[in-house]
């Protein structure tokens, strides 16, 4: 117990005094592009931060093989706004406007991998909004799920769930 506490104190004092902690962190995307970010940004990404903590701040270049150089800037942008406390409904609306369905899903997986709670919550809502009121076929295409019901089974299910099939939007084919 005492050991744990002292090691915590230790790490605290390191992060305060160690000059390397104020140095930038390099995030390397899956396609080998390097993004330099402030350590505060890295703090938002739980996965990255725990990597830094584990090596006592000595390693500042972190490979993120699951995230492409296309998605990483979005993640960084969101984290920057989050630290600055500037996440507003307007910003989120603008942010999501730039993303197509494919990008939302990729970002979502990236947020999951990096474990960024706020971004995950936000994107969960975006995904929920994008599949709400959509047809079953649309949702299947959206997630790439194959229908494994027989036509009879599906018809029966639809009948049982008739109360849910009100107000379904027509599918727009030009998504993605």
């Amino acid at each position: 117990m005492a050991e744990e506490v002292s090691s915590q104190m230790n790490s605290l004092s390191i992060s305060e005094t160690n000059p390397s902690s104020s140095a930038t962190i390099s995030l390397v995307s899956g396609d080998d592009i390097v993004f330099k970010v402030e350590p505060t940004i890295a703090k938002e990404m739980e996965t990255v931060q725990s990597f830094i903590d584990e090596t006592d701040g000595k390693i500042t270049t972190i490979p993120l093989p699951n995230i492409s150089s296309h998605d990483l800037p979005y993640v960084i942008e969101y984290c920057e706004k989050s630290i600055a406390g500037k996440i507003t409904k307007e910003f989120e609306a603008e942010f999501v406007k730039k993303l197509n369905n494919e990008e939302v899903k990729e970002l979502f997986l990236a947020a999951n991998y990096l474990n960024i709670k706020k971004l995950l919550d936000f994107l969960s809502q975006v995904i929920a909004d994008r599949i709400a009121n959509k047809s079953v076929e649309y949702v299947r295409r959206y997630f790439g799920i194959e229908n494994d019901f027989t036509p009879e089974e599906e018809a029966k299910l639809r009948e049982e769930l008739a109360w849910t099939f009100t107000g379904v939007d027509p599918d727009d084919e030009d998504e993605n």
Partner: peptide
Amino acid sequence: ILVQILRLLGPKEVAKLSVICRSL
């Protein structure tokens, strides 16, 4: 995380997802 999305979707939408496939 999937459960989180489902919660956001609400009951009517989630019930509808029963028709997507067996696992879902």
